[in-house]
């Protein structure tokens, strides 16, 4: 299985022994050994095809790396974090996905016309229809502006998050969009911030230290 190691806060290292890793297009920083890169197509079938569709449908192009060797990944100095999944389901905004592989079942979750962040911020631009979901046992590497922080949510402790800072969430969580009248008047014209995402249940919400 591919081994994910964080070299530093901005670079991920993956060792391949014949497997295939999917990553955000343009994020390969360096490579050694016998690794072939290919644009990923919707052809084929099975898990990989699902994975492709999950992410490409959201407007993020993927490339696959397959072979024997090493690949370093990074993207414009954004922070990298590796989220381990032990049977849970991770929902994540597609443009925050750096890398994953076939150990996880990738899918999509319909959350309105723009994904959770898009829906909440009311952006009209045609970005995508789904938010990516990953399920199973394995790792997903995420990109964030500043470190990714996991906030624990418990039944007695719901958390509200600024949609621009939201990266994703895992566990058994329900999300609602909260419109705060106060908040609207506070920020005036900036529509994006007049909503918050409210998470209830049991799980982790990931945020970044920025409102991109």
């Amino acid at each position: 299985m591919p081994v994910y190691t964080q070299v530093n806060e901005k670079v991920l290292h993956v060792t391949l022994a014949g497997e295939e890793v999917f990553a955000r297009k343009g994020s390969m920083v360096a490579t050694k050994g016998d690794v072939l890169f290919a644009r990923s197509f919707l052809g084929g079938g099975g898990v990989q095809q699902l994975a492709m569709r999950a992410v490409t449908n959201e407007g993020i192009q993927l490339m696959s790396a397959r072979g024997h060797g090493e690949v370093w990944y990074g993207h414009r100095g954004l922070h990298v974090s590796v989220v381990p999944l032990r049977g849970e389901r991770l929902c994540v905004e597609a443009d925050n996905v750096l890398a994953f592989d076939a150990r996880l079942r990738a899918g999509t979750s319909f959350l309105g016309s723009q994904g959770l962040r898009g829906l909440a911020s009311g952006v009209a631009a045609g970005q995508g229809l789904f938010t990516s979901t990953f399920e199973g046992h394995g790792e997903v590497a995420l990109l964030s502006d500043g470190d990714a922080i996991g906030l624990e949510v418990t039944s007695s402790r719901p958390v509200s998050v600024d949609p621009q800072a939201y990266l994703g969430h895992k566990g058994n969580l329900d999300s609602t969009i909260v419109t705060d009248v106060n908040w609207k008047t506070l920020l005036g014209q900036t529509s994006g911030e007049s909503y918050q995402l409210r998470f209830t249940g049991q799980g982790t919400v990931y945020i970044q230290a920025s409102e991109r």
Binding site: K10, V11, K25, G26, S27, M28, V29, A30, T31, F37, Q61, M63, W72, G74, H75, R76, G77, L78
Partner: peptide, 24 residues
Amino acid sequence: RSGEEKQLDFYGNGTVLVQSSEDA
């Protein structure tokens, strides 16, 4: 141009210094 189709190819006995790609 995405970086994957065209790369700098290094040979020899030395060291290459690599970073995350240039920021905005």
